[in-house]
Design a protein around this nucleic acid. Sequence first.
DNA 1: TTGTGACTCTTAGTCCGTT
DNA 2: AAACGGACTAAGAGTCACA
Lengths: 75, 75
Amino acid sequence: MPSPDPVLSKFGIHVRNLRETQDLTQEQLAERAKLDITYISGIERGLRNPSLLSLLRLAKALGVSLKQLTEGVEL
Amino acid sequence: MPSPDPVLSKFGIHVRNLRETQDLTQEQLAERAKLDITYISGIERGLRNPSLLSLLRLAKALGVSLKQLTEGVEL
DNA sequence: TTGTGACTCTTAGTCCGTT
DNA sequence: AAACGGACTAAGAGTCACA
């Protein structure tokens, strides 16, 4: 497993905020996005660098657009 | 090499439009984004599924935000 | 409920070339 | 200038048992 990346961490925190705002558990989000719960966990901790297709599934599961999902995330 | 994906193709076309609007060659964009030219080519043809970090580098190289880069891309 | 390490398999991403 | 191919290494996708 990679070590946390600052950019990915910022993204992960944002995902976590979006998830908690909707009172979802990681497990519920994982189910909706058809992703593994440990994968969600890794994303929220900034350990994963998801692909465009994964981002889209995540956005859909959270009921937000890709632009909302990546709000404030920059290099 | 994978076959083109409809979602990735839409994204690739958008990248190509952004690039051509700025009169950049694939090579110039590749250089700016620090990505391989063949990889840029694959992205524009919908054959590649870039990671979040690559998307950010691409956005920066094109001088657009991530939201602009992914405009209209949905599952 | 979430974090973590370890794992396999696939793909991201690079580099060589030719058309 | 760009498409396309092969071969390659690094890293992401996706899953598991367990803390």
